[in-house]
């Protein structure tokens, strides 16, 4: 990673996997309310956070993402009753796995944003963008990929 890059030379690429019923609508509401945030985020709509598996997150880094956001309904509010609980459980396991292989955990984010929380959506996106900008490009991910399999 080139530490010498100054802040604004670098525009991070952020991929967001969001559920259709809460966070996607929260982002819609942020639009309706004209809440401005940095344009670095690319939102992928999925029915539920329960649909998101590990590989999809890893894939985003492979495609050059500098950070990934997974966001769905608050616990108890899932449109599909319990899909977000599956997502949360999977995240707990995945986290350990990622940490174990030396993944930079500051680059993966998991939040709950409801359809009404436009402001929270804006804040989360600003926050992640700034954090990731400060971290610089995720060049180390390549090294992880090329590391010998033990």
């Amino acid at each position: 990673m080139s530490e010498t890059q100054t802040k604004h030379d670098f525009e991070p690429k952020i991929v967001a996997y969001v559920c259709n019923w809460c966070t996607y609508l929260g982002a819609d509401l942020a639009g309706t309310n004209r809440l401005e945030y940095p344009p670095n985020i690319r939102i992928l709509r999925l029915p539920c956070t329960g649909r998101i598996d590990f590989n999809l997150i890893v894939k985003a880094y492979e495609m050059g993402a500098d950070a990934v956001l997974v966001s769905g309904c608050h616990p108890g509010d899932c449109h599909y009753t319990s899909g977000n609980y599956h997502a949360r459980r999977r995240w707990m396991l995945f986290r350990v796995l990622l940490e174990g292989i030396g993944f930079d955990m500051r680059r993966v984010h998991f939040t709950w944003i409801s359809a009404a929380e436009a402001k929270k959506f804006q804040e989360v996106v600003i926050d992640i963008t700034e954090q990731t900008r400060a971290l610089g490009p995720y060049g180390d991910f390549r090294k992880l990929l090329e590391a010998p399999v033990c």
Binding site: G50, R51, S82
Partner: peptide, 18 residues
């Protein structure tokens, strides 16, 4: 919802439309 797609270890379930 697609929860099964993410759960399946052999990638044998898929969700039409997604």
């Amino acid at each position: 919802c697609g929860t099964c797609v993410a759960i399946c270890p052999s990638k044998s379930v898929d969700l039409a439309g997604f």
